[in-house]
Design a protein around this nucleic acid. Structure first.
Length: 210
DNA sequence: GAGTTGATCACT
DNA sequence: GTGATCAACTCT
């Protein structure tokens, strides 16, 4: 299985995840997220991310140092998965950044599907009647559904977990743009920070206002 | 514009 | 412990 994934580059090791969170969000564009389950293997290239940098960042769940069972993983080692449920319906996939004690994380907003498209469509078809290409993994809730990610992955270590991992991807030739983050109207002055990163002209980037 | 439910918070 | 409020969204 590992050999079959070599075309997506090498697996990213633990030290990779300790870079500062905004740099990590930028660097993750073009990397490849892989999940494995009894249903099969799926993979997608990251094309849209957002950095959240608590406790100062009012957009972050860890704003003002809020430390609860939900946010706990963000205070731990970088390279772990932070999953949370949105609007009672959709799971969102985040990567914890370092250092330990600093509750930083990167939200992965969109993927370009690479592997296991049939399985992705099967999983997605349960909630969407029609699926144009960008609708398979374009958006935080869509990509978790397509990749089979949910509560079970909370706290998984990307550098060593059997079910979820990151690959280095091709050398980064992508044109990366930045913008303010999406739907954080409650975050005051932090709304303006350009901590969203995306690949220019990629049809899988979730296109939304702002 | 509606849907959906766990987490969080302000109260006892 | 209890109840109210709301959310880093998706689909029609």
């Amino acid at each position: 299985m590992s050999e079959a994934l070599d075309r997506f580059g090498v697996r990213l090791e633990a030290p990779y995840f300790s870079m500062p969170v905004v740099a990590l969000a930028r660097d993750l564009i073009g990397r490849v997220l892989v999940t494995a389950s009894p249903e099969g293997v799926t993979a997608g290239r990251i094309v849209e991310t957002e950095a959240y940098r608590g406790p100062a960042d009012l957009a972050a769940h860890s704003a003002n140092g809020r430390r609860t069972p939900r946010t706990e993983v963000m205070f731990g080692e970088p390279g772990q998965v932070y999953m949370y449920l949105l609007y009672g319906m959709h799971w969102a996939f985040n990567i914890v950044a370092g250092p330990v004690g600093a509750p930083h994380a990167v939200l992965v907003r969109s993927l370009e599907p690479l592997l296991g498209l049939e399985l992705m469509m099967q999983r997605r078809a349960r909630s969407a009647n029609s699926l144009r290409p960008g609708e398979l993994c374009g958006g935080p809730g869509r990509l978790t559904q397509a990749m089979g990610l949910s509560r079970a992955q909370y706290g998984a270590f990307l550098a060593r977990d059997a079910c979820v991992s990151l690959r280095s991807g091709a050398p980064n030739c992508a044109r990366v743009k930045r913008s303010p983050r999406i739907n954080i109207d409650y975050a005051g002055a932090w709304i303006a920070r350009e901590w969203r990163f995306y690949e220019q002209n990629n049809p899988h980037v979730s296109v939304r206002p702002r």
